[in-house]
Write a protein that binds this DNA or RNA. Structure first.
Lengths: 118, 118
DNA sequence: TTGACATATATCCATATCGATATATATTGG
DNA sequence: CCAATATATATCGATATGGATATATGTCAA
């Protein structure tokens, strides 16, 4: 097996910086492809492909308006990521930092003891 | 260029399900490698490599205890992801959903107008 | 219809991946 | 020192990637 497809889930889709940029722009409102091409610094085929990936994982929706395709953010598909990361949020909070300090201290003592051991 | 390295940032590192599992286990407390090997269903070399990636992006710390390497979660490195996703949180909230409904409605009207237009 | 415009798709290439396997390194006990 | 244990590293193979380029599809306008 190789690395999971970028279309496997939102985690993989969002790992690519360009795609995060696209979502960032779309957060400001829906846009046709060419607008995105202008705002990011890359070619139109590349943008289309990134949009394809984002659509595959439900992060954007398309709408047809004449010859344009208007893309719109569907942020709800980011919720799994939000929820997953949320599990760890307390980890970088004050109470936990204090606990970290204690553990660091224990570690230091342990190291000292190990050194004495032999 | 190809896909960014998994060690490029936390986004890429965390895109891999096994690595998320590892972080999940470590959230319950520090562990030596073999514990992780037992809890995940994969080989020791694979676990070591995943840990290497996680260490590269600062998501875990190592501690040496005799021949064991005790790994510990460093959740703070998840903060960039948390912050980034947080930007979009309102997107899937009630007020925004209501706004979505309005936009959906506008879209419908627009489509009707377009049809009339010609 | 013809041509211009907007977007999508196909192909090429260099690269990093993940799992598997074999092996290297380091630490401990006897 | 030797064997066992704990972990890391090297290599292989199949695969999907992302940018670039060329081209196909679809829509509007004259």
């Amino acid at each position: 097996m190789a690395r999971a497809a970028t279309t496997a889930d939102a985690f993989n889709a969002v790992a690519e910086p360009r795609r995060r940029e696209i979502l960032h722009v779309l957060a400001g409102g829906e846009r046709p492809v060419n607008d995105l091409v202008a705002e990011l610094g890359i070619g139109q085929p590349q943008v289309s492909r990134h949009l394809r990936v984002l659509r595959a994982v439900g992060l954007v929706d398309v709408r047809y308006k004449g010859r344009q395709r208007i893309y719109r953010l569907h942020g709800q598909s980011l919720k799994p990521i939000h929820d997953w990361v949320g599990q760890f949020e307390q980890t970088w909070n004050d109470r936990f930092d204090a606990m970290d300090a204690v553990l660091e201290d224990l570690k230091a003592r342990e190291a000292t003891n190990d050194a004495d051991g032999e």
